[in-house]
Amino acid sequence: MLAAVFRGAGDIDVVELPDPVPGPGEVLLQVKACGICGSDVGAYKTGMYEPGIVIGHEIAAEVLEVGPGVEGWAPGDRATVNGVIPCGRCYFCRHGRPSLCEEVLMPGVNMNGGMATRMKAPAGALHHIPESVDDHAACLIDPLANVLHGIRRSRFKPGDRALVLGGGPIGLLTVQCLKLAGARAVYLSEPSPPRRRAGGSVGADAVFDPLAENLYIRLDELTEGEGVDFVFECAGVPATLKEAPMLVRKGGQVVILGICEEPVESDFMTVVLNEVEILGSYCGPEEYPAAITYLARGQVNPQSVISHVIPLEDLVSKGFEALAAPMPEPLKVVVEMPAR
């Protein structure tokens, strides 16, 4: 099989590897397409994944072969693989927090993933992809599940107002989900002009350029001085993380979905005086079914997020290099796997 192997920071190779063989309870998949996640790009910049791993956890695939003891799956079934495979035994699994599992397996992070023509996965980690969700859209199931997890963990309720910081795929999906969830208004702040345009197209009520506009003044105007109830930090960069607690109204909640690999200086005095809540949210293993339903019903528009579809051979040049740029042009890049 062909596979994209992570070697270290700035080093990903597409190489020939032996086909995996499914063991008991496992399934062999023919991967059709795989999205490049922001955390993959982060690893490409910083080297935070395990060297030697096959990357990729936003997977659209078809079952090729089932191992002994697998039920409910047959060759030809379309499937995606949950990005979090919890142990089911640790304290957090037993308390309903699989995204905090202490023995977690994560395809493309600490076990071989789906940026390859083939992969094997535990059958229990698979979800059926319905007919109405094409292979490209199926690559959004994982990031959409992440977003839904963050919103579900928050105190958000219909009628609330939110500011989304960062107009990448996670930010754009957050805008769409908050609107679907009944937000009174959702605003987006994003420095890149194409991403701001995308924000408008997915329904943001106002879109700001933080490099040219004073967000505090804009938000005061739009909310008649009340401020936004929520800030969803989806950029994962120090500047937005630092600013988020100051942008939310007093008593509001900051939900952090972006992963920042750098230390961030923050003003905790404002957090205390304004009784701001800060909430982290990681992955969304339990939200995969809901994400699939949203996509199947057409409630989330995949075309608004997927900007580029590239072949595997262009993974580094047109995928990682383009996404690692300081103000990247692509939004979600989906990689199509060759049929072999």
Binding site: D220, M246, L247, D267, T270, L273
Partner: peptide, 11 residues
């Protein structure tokens, strides 16, 4: 006054 910025630094 509504203060937006590093409150401690301002004080």
């Amino acid at each position: 006054l509504k203060i937006r910025g590093n409150f401690l630094k301002l004080l």
